[in-house]
Design a protein around this nucleic acid. Sequence first.
DNA 1: CCTGTACCGTACCGTTCGGTACGGCGTCAA
DNA 2: TTGACGCCGTACCGAACGGTACGGTACAGG
Lengths: 217, 217
Amino acid sequence: MDQSVCPDKSPLSSRQHEVLSAVLDLMVEEGDRFSMAAVARRASCSKETLYKWFGDRDGLLTATVRWQAAKVAMPPLPQTQLTRDAFAAALEAFAANWLNVITGDVSVALNRLAIAHAGSGKSGLGRIVLENGPFEMARRLEPVFLAGRDAGLVEFDSVETAFRTFFGLVVADSQTRALLGDTSRPKPDQIGRWAAHAVARFLQVYGAAARPAGKSN
Amino acid sequence: MDQSVCPDKSPLSSRQHEVLSAVLDLMVEEGDRFSMAAVARRASCSKETLYKWFGDRDGLLTATVRWQAAKVAMPPLPQTQLTRDAFAAALEAFAANWLNVITGDVSVALNRLAIAHAGSGKSGLGRIVLENGPFEMARRLEPVFLAGRDAGLVEFDSVETAFRTFFGLVVADSQTRALLGDTSRPKPDQIGRWAAHAVARFLQVYGAAARPAGKSN
DNA sequence: CCTGTACCGTACCGTTCGGTACGGCGTCAA
DNA sequence: TTGACGCCGTACCGAACGGTACGGTACAGG
């Protein structure tokens, strides 16, 4: 009996990646209403192989989510000697990239699946997406924020709060609307513009240089 | 043959409301993995009655979502002679209420269901939640924003953009995390504090009185 | 050549579930 | 009293699906 790949690490063969890719396609097309038979058909493999490799349906889904989540890579934000413009540009690039990812078909499908499973059932799909989504975003952003503070470009007490504000300003209602099936997808230039606006507002709130006289007047 | 209640308006009997309430409970407990038999058992009615009243499973779900969505009522924001404090207080109350609703069990369950159905299937559940969620929020907020602008308290070009910023600052990543199963639910006082912070930041960005010299400096 | 292995395709099994049919019971009106 | 009606409880049906078993094929190694 070959040990299945489900538990943790992924020495996945290319054939197995083909299967995962097929699953991803099915997810985008059908949500999670696709059968194991459909996966086997799409990937031109047998159900028996599917079960041998991934254990059960949940194992297959988990492997797919993990694999896709690992593929999403953020552009490494440069911490080199920060000027204000470089800082803002880095944040803008990050925000635009994030928005692109989040409103993409695969991300929407993945989040829908994870959310559905988080509601009814165990299977840490929600946890995985959470870990590779907002939490990972926070993890990547934290050193940048700290560098920005060290450089005297921004001021904040809690990195956590700053991150949540940034998240809110960038993502706003885009994700919720996409998940609920709103078809009005932002175009690339709109994304870029919104990212710029979001960063501008963020700096307006947290920017050390832009602090007016009184906090609330 | 009694005309089923699914198409549009709702002259629902109290008995039917009991059924819908049972469905809502099931949703919170089981996501959407509950059977019609389970609903009948919980509501102490027969499956046949269920189908007679609501047509099919989707009709039952739709009726439930509609009914719950209609129950969510925002406190009517007073447009009486706005002072800055009254304006801020109204926004804070609105934000806190919204956060309370959105992080509540039933709202999370409802959104999960709608999102899952938006992904795989027709059934305008996503549309309904969208319409009664963010869109309704925007609709209620718009006159308040306009009144605030008329009173010289805030400045903005696009109400749409202002609303999305407000939404982002208030909701941030709370909803995403809740939907994905993050168990760290904010306590009431934390919600109040966050709402106050969000409104403060909103006014910092859009407040007419707080506008510094340059837009981005 | 033979043997083992890994895989594909398909048939198969048990269960669950949406939807329907039927028998029985309480209620109300004539 | 009688009959019509609305509803409950349960049994039933057909389809779909998760998971397993089996036969057939290609290929590697000896």
